[in-house]
C-alpha cells in the first residue's frame, strides 16, 4: 500500500539507500545507537543466566537458578497476577469509555469540539510524574490510592486519550453510508453500534488495546506513586528490587528484567502486525500542523 501511494508499479523493488559521505556518517551514528541498544539488552539477558560475570567478554558459567531465586524472593507470581489485572482492567475500561468518544470526535462537529480535543490532548503533553503527584495526593484523600483500584484509575489518565487519538482517524475512514444504510433498514443507534460499527472497528480496537497494554506495562511513574505494597506491577517491582533493603544478586534483578522484557515484547510483537512503528508514538501531527 505504501508502494502504491508512492506511485510505484507493483513488483518494482524499493530503491536502495544511496550513501554520500554525510549519509555514511548518519548510518554510522544510527549503527552505533542500534548496536549499543542491542548490546545493552543482550548483556541483561546474559547476566540473568550467568553463574558469575566479572570483567570478561562472556560469563564464566551458565545457570538458571536466578530465575527460581527471583520467583521466590520477589514474589514474581503475585506481581505477574497484579500486572495482568491492571493491564486487562485499563485496556477494557479505556476501550469501552474511549471508543464512543472517538466516534463522536470522528463523526460530529459541535460547539466546543476543539476544547474537548484539547482536554484529551493535555494528559499527553504533561509528563506522568508532574500530574502523578497531585493525582496520587487526591486519590489518597479519597482512600483510593494504595490499592489496585488506585493503580487502575491512575493508569486510565494516559491510556484513555491514547485510545481516543488512535481510534478517531480509524473511525473517520469507515464509510458513513454504511451507518446510514443500517438506519434506513430500521436499526436503532444501539444496533448500528453493536452490529455494524463494532465489527468494522475490531482491527482498530485490537491495535489500540494492544498499544495501551504495552504502555501500561511500561508505565512506571503513575503505578509507583499510587501502588501499595501488594499491588505493584512488574516494572515497579523491578525498580524496588534494585533499591529494596538487603543485598540482592545483580543476576536475580536481571532475571526479573528479562521476565519484564518478555511480557512487554509479546503484546508489542502482536501490535506490530497491525500498526506501523511510527504510529505507536503519539499521533499529534494532524493537530499540530493545523
Amino acid at each position: 500500500m505504501a508502494d502504491a501511494l508512492a506511485g510505484r508499479p507493483a513488483g518494482v523493488p524499493r530503491p536502495r539507500l544511496t550513501f554520500s559521505p554525510s549519509g555514511w556518517l548518519l548510518a554510522a551514528v544510527m549503527a552505533f545507537f542500534v548496536v549499543n541498544v542491542v548490546a545493552l539488552v543482550v548483556s541483561v539477558l546474559f547476566n540473568s543466566f550467568a553463574s558469575s560475570w566479572f570483567a570478561t567478554p562472556i560469563p564464566s558459567g551458565w545457570t538458571t537458578r536466578w530465575y527460581r531465586f527471583a520467583a521466590t524472593t520477589f514474589q514474581l507470581s503475585d506481581v505477574l497476577v497484579v500486572t495482568a489485572q491492571v493491564g486487562a482492567a485499563v485496556v477494557a475500561i479505556s476501550l469501552v469509555v474511549g471508543a464512543p468518544a472517538a466516534y463522536v470526535l470522528a463523526r460530529r462537529t459541535f460547539p466546543f469540539k476543539r476544547a474537548l480535543l484539547l482536554l484529551f490532548l493535555l494528559p499527553m503533553l504533561v509528563p506522568p510524574i508532574t500530574y502523578g503527584i497531585p493525582l496520587a495526593t487526591a486519590l489518597y484523600k479519597f482512600n483510593l490510592a494504595g490499592s489496585l483500584r488506585g493503580v487502575i484509575l491512575a493508569n486510565l489518565v494516559p491510556a484513555l486519550p491514547f485510545v481516543i487519538l488512535v481510534l478517531t482517524p480509524f473511525i473517520e475512514q469507515i464509510d458513513e453510508n454504511v451507518e446510514r444504510a443500517a438506519r434506513m433498514c430500521g436499526a436503532s443507534t444501539w444496533r448500528v453500534f453493536s452490529r455494524v460499527l463494532a465489527p468494522l472497528c475490531i482491527p482498530g480496537l485490537l491495535a489500540a488495546g494492544l498499544m495501551v497494554l504495552v504502555r501500561v506495562l511500561a508505565m512506571f511513574e503513575l503505578t509507583f506513586l499510587t501502588a501499595g505494597p501488594g499491588d505493584q506491577t512488574l516494572v515497579v517491582a523491578l525498580y524496588y528490587s534494585v533499591f529494596a533493603a538487603g543485598i540482592r544478586p545483580a543476576q536475580a534483578i536481571d532475571a526479573m528484567a528479562v521476565v519484564y522484557m518478555l511480557t512487554t515484547f509479546v503484546p508489542l510483537l502482536i501490535a506490530l502486525r497491525f500498526v506501523n512503528p511510527t504510529q505507536m508514538v503519539v499521533r499529534l501531527k494532524r493537530e499540530a500542523a493545523a
Partner: peptide
C-alpha cells in the same frame, strides 16, 4: 521506547 526508562537504567548499570 516500549521498554521504558526503568529497564534501560537497569541495563545500563551492568552495560
Amino acid at each position: 521506547v516500549t521498554l521504558g526508562t526503568v529497564l534501560v537504567a537497569q541495563g545500563l548499570i551492568r552495560y
